[in-house]
Design a protein around this nucleic acid. Structure first.
Length: 850
DNA sequence: TCGATA
DNA sequence: AACGGCTTATCGA
């Protein structure tokens, strides 16, 4: 430990399970040397789990533990919030972390449970030391501990009134101030991408690394770029592309071994190594290839085959594929800006630059073409991490701090892990015993108090108000700010407060259910979620708009809290979540339905017409301003949930269907919900037509203008019909896109996209067989998750994949006509364009418009 | 035509 | 590897 100096800045990045020492390994970023220091646990922390059997019983079976397993068994004291009591569990301290599962198994043979035995040791270490990944520390050699010299960075202070009003959350504000309000360090970062030799139909695999690595590109955050290329005599050099970057260094190698060694040498200079799919391909392959070439000793890659992870001893690996694949990140941090999780799709959506598109295989590229292709991948991977003032990198740091997850774990795990970690940490901080999922289930029951509307769901969800169909002018939409998190916070919902064991609490009934909520103790989930919601609304949201000098930091913090808060209810409602308690999820939606119901009543009592509403919103027909304010004030007082005026529509067109409408704002902006023309499976020619019609409608200000617009709309639709009949649309424009959710072989049904997928598979197989002496390609070309694009056609299967369309295959005009009808019927059905005659089949849409 | 399923 | 509610298309009885 003597390498740590006092009064020097270190950032704790990660803790890992150190297999060699069978203990915790710690990765610290040393600011002065700009390197990661790796060392073993300096705290002498001991692994353990708990048992609720009396000490004497456990001592009696001690002989069953193999030698060097259990160090000691001691009685401890913990607060058991589930039963609102104090417990004295026996703490079984083991020699190393890997003994904990063994102890668990031995106790199980006696029918005894264990607690806190499934927490990964390197995370347990963080909860007990209360050290925070992503945070800055100093080393105090005399006490052999990390200390925090100055906790809040300049300009990030929370105003006193905010601190005071958040004091009710059991010390969470103090934790927040101490641990989260600091600079994010500047780190040496490099992105890496590799290309291998390739044969058609064969995917390079780390299990059989038979193809040489022919190019490796590295791009760092200091704008250094290196391309390492294997010279191959049979490959043309080609010509450099037009704008080869000045800073690009190209190194050529005759020998692949030297190329790999040089790569390893470069990688060792960096603290953060990022990749796109590096856990699954680039680094396993690089490592396997090093083994194949017998230079494994120079590889810095630690490959965990079972966990499908690649790590580095003196760096952290961020696989951006895994981060951007995360549903919570995709939806709440990036607002679904990208739809597919490929490097090309994500980079195109966020950076506006995708991969280089190739019209030939990797094997056919000239050396320069190969460099260009590989470099682009490395560069956009780096740029994704640094996108928008390093938003992804900063999100990773802040989320790691809040959820107390090691940075590389955070990137690889889903939001339910993050919330779990956050909750576990808070239990430890407060000295609470962490219950097993079965404890909660046994005490609170698995039954629900409500019945779900949709078959197969566990409990009832949100309320959607039946829309009043038609055109409505001047419509205000009010919505509850963070409805479910607010409810969890203000109604004190938590696994221990629902159905608590106090008789006097049984009167605090959850609306329309048989549940009651504790009024004696604050719930731990209610505290954490309520606190995050409050600090975000009270402080971060306003300050991230006002404070210009610290805007960036505040925005990132605000966004991180948004990710956690928005995902929290969903996680609580999932039976895979270790602290899952069905009554909590059930009560959350029950209070939600109650809130929207009472709001409708209130609005109607003020003579305001409620046109529509969904989960947390109400659409009000031209409400006077002062009445809106009255409703907002009432909600704050009576419901304890913030209600806000979200938007005002110049007009909104509601159909008779729920979740299907479009509205036009004062500035002409259009919002479309649920309508078919917007869905991704709708053929592009219809999407385009749909958008053009919307554009016409967005210019309408009153009823008279509608009739003018209608004429134009008619013309537009007529034109679409004509083009369809005259065969003016390309197969791409006519294509219907659907995802193959299962492997092709496991489909029992023979629906359109399955038929198309089978045709494509057969086509590729035949092509392959003709090139490989009639041998089949066993793995199959069409994989689960792939998007299938097909055209509705007249012959045979009645569908043809876009790729197999040719001049002599005709599209099915009738089928497309009915698609046009249903798409525009949805859009215009609510307008006074009467399409009933169409539905009855008397005339078609084209005749109608004539 | 209707329920089940994606 | 977060929830439930809702709409649409298609299959098979």
């Amino acid at each position: 430990m003597n390498e740590l100096k006092s009064q020097q800045d270190y950032f704790l990045l990660s803790t890992v399970y150190d297999a060699e020492s069978n203990g915790a390994g710690i990765k610290l970023f040393d600011v002065s040397s700009q390197k990661i220091i790796y060392f073993l646990d300096p705290y002498g922390h001991e692994p353990y789990c708990y048992s609720l059997e009396p000490l004497s019983e456990l001592k009696a079976i001690e002989a069953e533990f193999p030698p060097n397993t259990v160090k000691r068994i001691v009685t401890t004291k913990k607060k058991d919030i589930l039963n609102d009591s104090i417990v004295n569990p026996s703490q079984i301290v083991t020699v190393t972390p890997s003994e904990v599962p063994k102890v668990r198994d031995i106790l199980k043979t006696h029918g005894w449970e264990t607690w806190e035995s499934r927490i990964k040791y390197h995370r347990n270490w963080l909860y007990d030391t209360q050290l925070v990944p992503g945070r800055k520390y100093w080393w105090d050699e005399s006490n052999r501990k990390f200390i925090s010299p100055q906790s809040i960075s300049e300009g990030l202070e929370i105003p006193t009134p905010v601190i005071e009003s958040l004091a009710k959350y059991s010390g969470l504000i103090q934790v927040f101030q101490d641990d989260f309000l600091q600079e994010i360090p500047n780190l040496p970062i490099v992105a890496c991408d590799i290309e291998t030799e390739y044969e058609e139909g064969q995917i390079p695999q780390s299990s059989d690394p038979k193809f040489p690595i022919i190019c490796i590109c590295l791009s760092d955050n200091n704008n250094n770029e290196i391309a390492l290329v294997l010279s191959r005599k049979y490959v043309e050099k080609g010509k450099p592309w037009a704008d080869v970057p000045q800073n690009l260094n190209i190194e050529s190698f005759e020998d692949e071994k030297l190329l790999l060694r040089r790569t390893f040498e470069i990688l060792k200079k960096y603290s953060v190594i990022c990749s796109f799919n590096g856990d699954n391909f680039d680094f396993p392959y690089l490592h396997a290839r090093a083994r194949h070439l017998k230079i494994i000793k120079s590889s810095p890659i630690l490959w965990n085959r079972r966990a499908k992870e690649c790590n580095f001893r003196n760096a952290i690996h961020l696989d951006l594929y895994r981060f951007f694949h995360n549903v919570a990140i995709k939806t709440y941090a990036f607002g679904n800006k990208y739809q597919e999780e490929t490097l090309d799709a994500i980079a195109s959506a966020l950076l506006g630059i995708g991969k280089i598109s190739l019209n030939k295989g990797i094997a056919e590229l000239t050396e320069w073409e190969l460099i260009r292709y590989c470099l682009r991948d490395a560069r956009i991977t780096r740029d994704l991490l640094l996108y928008d003032n390093s938003t992804p990198l900063n999100l990773i740091f802040i989320l790691a701090r809040i959820s107390r997850m090691p940075i590389d774990d955070l990137v690889r795990t889903s939001v339910s892990n993050w919330v779990q970690s956050l909750f576990y940490h808070e239990h430890r901080r407060r000295g609470y015993f962490i219950p097993n999922q079965s404890d909660i289930h046994l005490l609170k029951g698995g039954g629900t108090s409500t019945e779900a509307i949709i078959k197969g769901k566990k409990y009832k969800g949100a309320k959607v108000i039946d829309p009043t169909p038609g055109i409505h002018f001047n419509v205000a939409v009010l919505d509850f700010a963070s409805l479910y998190p607010s409810i969890i916070g203000t109604k004190n919902l938590s696994y221990e407060t629902l159905l608590c064991n106090h008789i006097e609490c049984k009167k605090n009934i959850v609306p329309q259910t048989n549940y009651w909520v504790c009024s004696k103790n604050r719930g731990i989930m209610a505290d954490i979620i309520g606190f995050i919601k409050d600090i975000r609304v009270m402080w971060l949201k306003p300050v991230s708009k006002e404070n210009l000098s610290r805007k960036n930091f505040f925005q990132i913090l605000e966004r991180s809290l948004k990710v956690l808060i928005n995902a929290s209810y969903g996680v609580l409602g999932s039976d895979r979540f270790p602290l899952y308690c069905l009554p909590v999820a059930d009560s959350t939606t029950a209070f939600g339905r109650d809130a929207i119901n009472k709001t409708i009543e209130k609005a109607e009592s003020l003579d305001i017409t409620v046109l529509y509403g969904d989960t947390d919103s109400v659409f009000l027909l031209s409400p006077p301003k002062e009445r809106i304010n009255e409703i907002i004030q009432w909600s704050k007082k009576e419901l304890e949930v913030g209600l806000e005026m979200e938007k005002v529509y110049k007009y909104v067109v509601l159909s008779q269907r729920k979740k299907n409408y479009f509205g036009v704002y004062e500035d002409g902006g259009v919002e479309v919900k649920g309508l078919m023309g917007k869905k991704r499976n709708t053929p592009p020619f219809l999407q385009d037509g749909f958008n053009e019609v919307l554009n016409l409608l967005s210019q309408v200000n009153n009823l008279e203008e509608f009739s003018k617009a209608k004429e134009k709309v008619k013309g537009l639709i007529k034109n679409i019909y004509a083009k369809l009949e005259k065969n003016k649309y390309s197969p791409e424009e006519l294509s219907i896109t659907m995802q193959l959710t299962q492997p092709l072989g496991s489909y029992k049904v023979n629906s359109q996209h399955v038929k198309a997928a089978r045709q494509l598979e057969n086509y590729h197989q035949e092509l392959y067989m003709s090139k490989h002496n009639g041998k089949k390609y066993d793995e199959g070309f069409i994989k689960a998750g792939q998007l299938i694009r097909f055209v509705k056609t007249k012959e045979g299967d009645r569908v043809t994949p876009v790729e197999l369309m040719s001049k002599d295959i005709k599209h099915d005009i009738k089928a497309y006509k009915s698609m046009i009808e249903s798409t525009f019927d949805q859009l215009l059905g609510a307008l006074d364009i009467n399409l009933e005659e169409l539905a009855s089949g008397q005339i078609n849409l084209m005749e109608f418009f004539n």
